[in-house]
């Protein structure tokens, strides 16, 4: 009996199956993704390719293996609905009363998001104008759509206008690493894709929104322990040049505190890879509201989240 061909066929078909599942199909499905528009802004295409310097920075990120310590994927455990007042009119006491009543509803209904004592205080001493300043502002948080709709109705009845906001939640988001989960669309123009598999350091999916300042990125690359005491991040001094100050100091030289400053007469200047890497880090943002990762971006509260413009602005520095 000759089993050779049988083993060959078995292995062939087994591997062909997994090959078509995880090589061919992703190519057909993810590989055919196109730019989409963001929710609420039908003209903004997402994602947009990185500007040139940041694109070069991706190469520095790859060559130095930054992805072995930093992931670029934020997770979320779910979404909640927040009920925001957009217009409180002039007669505040009934609105405050309605809010308090809603907050006192059973556990599966809406609960008060902002501090309950403040509302109570507003009702008793008439400081309602201050409390209802700065609208739109979210007051209630609900886990069910029905509860949220009922709350909006109740607020309308009290004379206010309210909106429903979709807010992703999860430990990563609470830590300030992003405003929604990362999805395949965020990586559309990345080559190579480096989502990372470890968090020795913090997640970088939204590094650009957290720290848009390129100079601070450069400083962090040169001396990580300055901004974060006890950090295990290695310094990347080979991306910088320490040189004698010529006729006048270079405008690009790092402004270093005394403990890491070079001796007098010397300056530390970032080499092109360092500048590219810093531009790349500042360009990292994955917070556009998408169809499959929805979130509400309150228009007036945080104007910086109109992604495209902000990305270009941050990396053009």
């Amino acid at each position: 009996m000759n089993y050779g061909p049988l083993i060959f066929l078995a292995a062939f078909f087994a591997l062909a199956g997994s090959w078509s599942g995880f090589v061919l199909t992703p190519q057909l499905q993810i590989g055919r993704l196109q730019q989409t528009n963001t929710i609420g802004n039908p003209t903004a295409a997402y994602p947009v390719a990185r500007p040139g310097l940041a694109q070069q920075g991706l190469d520095v990120y790859r060559a130095n293996g930054c992805a072995y310590c930093h992931s670029q994927q934020v997770g979320q455990t779910g979404t909640v609905l927040e009920i925001a007042l957009t217009d409180a009119g002039t007669n505040h006491p009934p609105i405050i009363a309605a809010l308090l009543k809603l907050a006192a509803a059973p556990a599966d209904g809406p609960t008060v998001l902002t501090a309950l004592p403040q509302l109570e205080a507003a009702r008793t001493n008439g400081g309602s104008a201050m409390l209802l300043d700065g609208l739109p502002k979210a007051f209630l948080r609900s886990s069910s759509r029905e509860g949220a709709n009922a709350a909006i109705k109740a607020l309308y009845a009290a004379g206010a206008k309210a909106q429903l906001w979709i807010v992703p939640v999860g430990p990563d988001l609470a830590r300030g690493w992003g405003s929604r989960r990362t999805v395949a669309e965020d990586f559309l123009f990345e080559a190579p894709v480096m989502p990372g598999s470890q968090r020795v350091g913090p997640d970088l999916a939204n590094m650009g929104t957290r720290q848009p300042n390129v100079n601070l990125h450069l400083l962090h690359l040169y001396a990580p322990q300055l901004q974060m005491k006890g950090s295990t991040m290695p310094p990347y001094r080979f991306l910088f040049e320490r040189r004698k100050i010529g006729l006048e100091p270079s405008p690009e030289a790092l402004v270093l505190p005394a403990e890491v400053a070079p001796p007098a007469g010397y300056e530390v200047v970032p080499k092109p890879p360092a500048r590219a890497l810093a531009a790349y880090l500042a360009s990292l943002r994955a917070d556009a509201p998408l169809f499959n990762a929805p979130l509400t971006v309150p228009a007036s509260a945080t104007p910086a989240t109109s992604t495209n413009a902000a990305t270009t602005a941050a990396s053009a520095k």
Binding site: A11, L15, S18, W19, F22, V23, P26, Q27, Q29, I30, G31, R32, L33, A184, E185, F187, L188, F189, E190, A191, P192, V193, P195
Partner: peptide, 29 residues
């Protein structure tokens, strides 16, 4: 097994190129 997976991964990821997360899926595979 090895020549198939190695050639696929190298050709797709370093040669022809795949878009976006398809690269990551192939690398995981």
């Amino acid at each position: 097994w090895f020549p198939w997976i190695y050639s696929t991964a190298n050709l797709v990821l370093q040669g022809f190129g795949a878009r976006g997360m398809a690269q990551a899926v192939i690398a995981w595979w």
